[in-house]
Amino acid sequence: MQYATAAAPPTWWSRLLARVSRAEDVHVPRGRPLRAPPAWHDEGRPPSLTELYRAWRLDMVRLALFLVDDLHTAEDVVQDAFAAVCRAYGTSLAGLQDPGAYLHTAVVNASRSVLRRRRTARAYTPPHQGAGPPVDEGLLLAEEHREVLDALAGLTRRQREVLVLRYWSGLTEAQIAQTLGLSRGTVKSTASRALDALEKRLEASR
Rank of each mutant, 00 (worst) to 15 (best):
118 R>H: 05
42 D>Y: 12
1 M>G: 01
146 R>S: 14
179 T>G: 02
113 S>P: 01
2 Q>M: 06
89 Y>M: 08
127 P>M: 04
124 Y>H: 11
191 A>K: 13
175 Q>E: 13
29 P>D: 10
99 P>Q: 13
202 L>F: 02
93 L>I: 04
158 R>C: 02
14 S>G: 12
141 L>P: 00
172 T>Y: 02
15 R>S: 14
28 V>K: 01
42 D>K: 09
117 R>T: 11
84 A>G: 13
53 Y>L: 05
69 D>Y: 01
80 D>L: 06
129 Q>T: 12
40 W>T: 13
47 P>I: 04
82 F>W: 05
127 P>E: 04
81 A>N: 02
101 A>H: 06
108 V>S: 00
19 R>V: 01
23 A>I: 03
18 A>G: 10
32 R>C: 11
125 T>D: 06
100 G>K: 02
3 Y>F: 15
28 V>L: 14
112 R>S: 03
100 G>W: 00
180 L>M: 13
47 P>N: 05
181 G>R: 07
80 D>N: 13
83 A>H: 07
38 P>M: 13
27 H>D: 12
140 L>E: 00
28 V>F: 12
176 I>P: 03
131 A>P: 09
110 A>C: 09
150 D>M: 09
147 E>C: 11
123 A>T: 13
24 E>Q: 11
193 R>L: 10
52 L>I: 14
85 V>I: 15
136 D>S: 09
158 R>G: 02
5 T>R: 15
109 N>R: 06
145 H>N: 10
203 E>H: 15
101 A>S: 15
146 R>Q: 12
47 P>W: 02
37 P>H: 13
47 P>T: 07
5 T>W: 08
35 R>W: 08
151 A>E: 01
78 V>C: 03
116 R>K: 10
188 K>H: 12
51 E>L: 07
84 A>E: 13
119 R>D: 15
196 D>K: 13
206 R>M: 11
190 T>I: 03
146 R>A: 07
188 K>Y: 06
66 F>I: 05
179 T>H: 01
22 R>V: 03
203 E>R: 15
117 R>N: 13
44 G>K: 05
70 D>W: 02
